[in-house]
Design a binder for these strands. Structure first.
Lengths: 195, 195
DNA sequence: CGAATAAGAGACGCCCTGTCTCTAATGCCG
DNA sequence: CGGCATTAGAGACAGGGCGTCTCTTATTCG
C-alpha cells in the first residue's frame, strides 16, 4: 500500500494567495461587500481563517488586495484619440465602466472601513489627465499651463461624485455633459485659469 | 404604606423617543458610527433593544432619525448677501460646517448601509441654489435661465466630493477656488449654458 | 374602573470576529 | 537524500452584537 502519498495536497505561498484572492472576488460577487465575511472567503478558498489573517489584517485590506489583483490600472493606457474632447470622454468612460465592475456596494463599504485609500485609489486620474492635457498642448489645442489643478481633476471629480451618490450606472449623456458643459468651457475661457 | 406609587417611572411615546434620539447622538459622539450598537444606545437611553427595534428597523435608520432631529435644514435660511458670489460662498460654508459636525465616519457609514438617502439628503442644495440664482437674476447680476441644472448644483457637488474623499475639514480656500475658478467663470461665460 | 397598550428587563439562538492550538504537508538546506 | 523549519488545514474558543421572544407591570384610554 502507498502510505507515503499525502492524503491531501496543500497549496502554499503565492499559489495559495492567488486562490484566496480569487475566492474573495467570487464571494464579493455572490454576497456583496456588506455580507462578505472572513469565514465565507476562507470556506470558499478551502482554507482556514488563520491563513487569511496571517496576510491581511481585516476585511477591507483583503478586498483591496483582491481588487488590485484584478485591476489593470487606468494609468497604464491613456487614451489618445488626437483630440482633447475625445481623450477626456474616453477616460471618463473607462472610469465609469470600472466602477460598474466593482459596484457601489464595495466602494461605499471600503470608504467606510478603510481609513486611507485616497492616495493610491483616487489620485491616479490626476496623472492621466495631465498626460492628456500635455498632449493637447503639444498639438496646439490649448495653451501650455493654461489649466490649473482644480480644472485638471474636475472631470474625474464630477464623475466620481456622480458615481458615489447615484449607485446606478452613469449614462453616457452625463459624461458628455461634464465635458461639454463644464470642462471644455473652462479650458477654453480666455481667462485661462492659473493656480 | 404607599404601595400604589410605581417603583419606577416609565417614559412613553414622544418623550421616550426624544430620549432615545438624544442617546443616539451622544453615543455617536462617544464611539463613532462604526462602533455604535443598538445595545449601546439602548443602555445609554436606559431602555431595551426591543423599544428601538419597534421604531427603527436598523442602525442606519436610527442614526438618520437622530440626525434629522438635530438638524435645522439649510434650506430654511438661504443666505442673502446681496451678491451672487457671497451667497454661494456662504451656503458652501454652511455645508462644510454641517459636515464637520456630523463627521465623515457617520456619512460614510450611512452611505454604505442606507440604500436610499439621496432624495432627502442631497437634493436640498438644488433648491437653495435655485433661490440664490433667482435672486441674482432679479438683481440683474445674471441673465434669467442662463444657468443650467448641472452648473446650478456644481458648487455643492464639488464640495461634497471634496468632503467625501478627504475626511478632513475643508479649508475656506477650497470654497473660494470652487466659486472663483469654476462656478463664476461658467455663469459669466457669454455662451450661457442651457440644458 | 377595567382593558388595551407598550416599556423595561432579560434570555435566546445565531453568526462573525480574532486568537490559539494541534497535526501533518511542504520545501529548503546541509 | 534526509532532517528541519515553516506553515497550511482544521477546529475550538471566548467575546460580542444581532434580531426575536417572553414576561411582568406601569401607563393610558375609553
Amino acid at each position: 500500500m502507498n502510505d507515503d502519498a499525502p492524503a491531501v495536497r496543500r497549496r502554499r505561498g503565492s499559489e495559495l494567495e492567488a486562490a484566496i484572492l480569487r475566492a474573495t472576488w467570487e464571494e464579493l460577487g455572490a454576497v456583496g461587500y456588506m455580507n462578505l465575511t472572513m469565514e465565507g472567503v476562507a470556506d470558499r478558498a478551502r482554507t482556514g481563517k488563520q491563513v487569511l489573517y496571517r496576510r491581511w489584517r481585516n476585511r477591507a485590506e483583503l478586498v483591496l488586495a483582491a481588487m488590485r489583483s484584478r485591476v489593470v490600472s487606468i494609468a497604464d493606457d491613456v487614451p489618445d484619440t488626437g483630440e482633447l474632447r475625445g481623450d477626456v470622454l474616453a477616460v471618463l468612460d473607462r472610469m465609469a465602466r470600472r466602477y460598474d465592475d466593482v459596484g457601489p456596494d464595495v466602494v461605499h463599504g471600503l470608504m467606510a472601513e478603510a481609513r486611507d485609500l485616497d492616495p493610491v485609489f483616487f489620485s491616479i486620474m490626476t496623472g492621466v489627465m495631465e498626460t492628456i492635457l500635455r498632449r493637447a498642448a503639444d498639438r496646439g489645442e490649448i495653451r501650455p499651463g493654461a489649466v490649473g489643478r482644480r480644472i485638471t481633476t474636475l472631470p474625474a471629480d464630477l464623475l466620481r461624485h456622480e458615481m458615489l451618490l447615484t449607485s446606478a450606472p452613469v449614462p453616457e449623456s452625463t459624461l458628455v455633459e461634464i465635458v461639454d458643459d463644464v470642462f471644455l468651457p473652462l479650458v477654453n475661457s480666455r481667462a485661462g485659469r492659473r493656480r
